[in-house]
Amino acid sequence: MERGNNSCISQFLLLGLSEDPELQPILFGLFLSMYLITVLGNLLIILAVTSDSRLHTPMYFFICNLSFVDICFSSTIVPKMLVNIQAQTKDISFLQCFIQVYFFMMFALMDHFLLTLMAYDRFVAICHPLKYMIIMNPQLCGLLVFMSWFVIFWDALLHLLLILRLTFTRSTEIPHFFCNLPPLLQVASSDTHINDIVLYVTTALLGVFPVMGILFSYSQILSSLMKMTSSESKTKAFSTCGSHLCMVSLYYGTSIAEYLSFTFTHSSQASMIASVMYTVVTPMLNPFIYSLRNKDVKGALGRLLNRKVSSFADH
């Protein structure tokens, strides 16, 4: 295996979303606001679920995990981008870049895995309601999440080790606003053939299986809905899937748009716009989708806020 020599560089240069000086304050305010909303909104979801015993069910266990991952996902990217905008610099150190690549891959994949687990949870709830609590027991839910983290940890580590063998020229410019694997491979000065093959294989395996799982779950759910005679039962069953379907559409729609823009247009600007939707906007919308469309979460949030207000008033 070719041995990379990265000692000749100390940093990369991130080209960012725009080089227009007049746009920098606007971008800083916009992304800071979106990041704060993402963190606060997802933290509220986590607090509502953990503090309310009525939400201690498999579905909300997965939602809680999704909110945690979304906070970590945004925190991997946005703070460094805000620092660069504020300081009017483009640099990111060698170490910071590869840490960002590693954690970005982990949290992005975990989002997809959790969406698949949530689809399976809805499949069991609607298609096997009498066996739901037996099948989706806490031990199984915990094991599924643990196994997802285990697989993702080693997949991200494999890509990281393969990147470390590559060579980059001094002050390599990355046509993106954060360190992502495809743009990084694009600017490497050494052969990336092995990296590309591993990327395609792991993307196919870890991308296709979750999608197939979601499609299978909803095909079975649709089949069960068609067999229901009561329209009220159909509406109730479908309403439990509404928030999840919104999240699936957002995550996969924006990630596919990012992939297509990077693969076929080779436009860094188009790819970055799609990436903003995928990495910043979607995690921000997650708490709104689950709080506005779900009366249980709205009720838990209301009770949580009332307790905080009462506690503050007592003091």
Results as ranks from 00 to 15, higher is better:
M228V: 09
S249V: 13
Y218V: 11
L215D: 09
V187L: 08
L157M: 13
E258M: 14
S249D: 07
L205C: 15
S255E: 05
L184G: 00
M272W: 07
H266F: 04
S219Y: 09
E232I: 14
L215R: 10
V145Y: 09
M277R: 06
L158T: 14
T203R: 04
H244P: 02
F146W: 12
V145F: 12
V248I: 15
L222I: 12
L181F: 13
Y218Q: 09
L199P: 00
S224N: 11
M284Y: 08
V248F: 11
S233W: 07
S271Q: 13
T203V: 09
M228W: 10
L164P: 02
S224I: 04
H176N: 15
Y200T: 11
L161A: 03
W149D: 07
H193A: 14
V187D: 04
R165G: 01
P283D: 07
V198T: 01
F178W: 03
G207A: 03
A204M: 13
R165E: 02
F216M: 14
S148L: 05
H193D: 03
S239E: 12
W154K: 08
W154M: 08
N195R: 04
Y218F: 15
L164T: 08
D155L: 12
L184D: 00
L184P: 02
T192K: 03
L199C: 09
N180V: 05
I221L: 10
I197M: 12
Y200L: 13
S233D: 15
G253Q: 07
C179W: 00
V151P: 00
A274P: 04
A204C: 13
S231N: 14
F264I: 07
L250I: 04
R165C: 00
L206F: 15
I197H: 11
H176C: 11
W149I: 09
I197Q: 12
L250D: 01
F238S: 13
F238Y: 13
T172R: 09
Y259P: 00
I214G: 05
T240G: 13
F262P: 00
T254K: 06
L162V: 05
F150L: 15
F153G: 02
C246G: 06
S189Q: 04
Y200A: 14
Y251I: 10
Y251G: 01
S190D: 01
L164S: 08
L185F: 05
S243R: 10
L161I: 07
V208L: 15
L161T: 04
L215K: 10
Y200H: 10
L166C: 05
V276H: 02
L185D: 01
H159W: 05
S267H: 06
S268C: 09
V208F: 13
V187C: 13
T254Y: 11
F168E: 00
F153I: 14
L166V: 06
Y251W: 12
T235Q: 15
G242I: 07
F264H: 13
T172I: 08
L215M: 14
A188S: 15
C246H: 11
S223K: 09
S275R: 01
A156C: 12
H266W: 05
S261P: 06
S190V: 01
V280S: 07
S249R: 11
Y278P: 00
K236M: 09
E258S: 09
I174G: 00
K234N: 06
K234Y: 06
K227L: 14
M147Q: 11
L181A: 11
L205H: 03
S189R: 03
L225H: 03
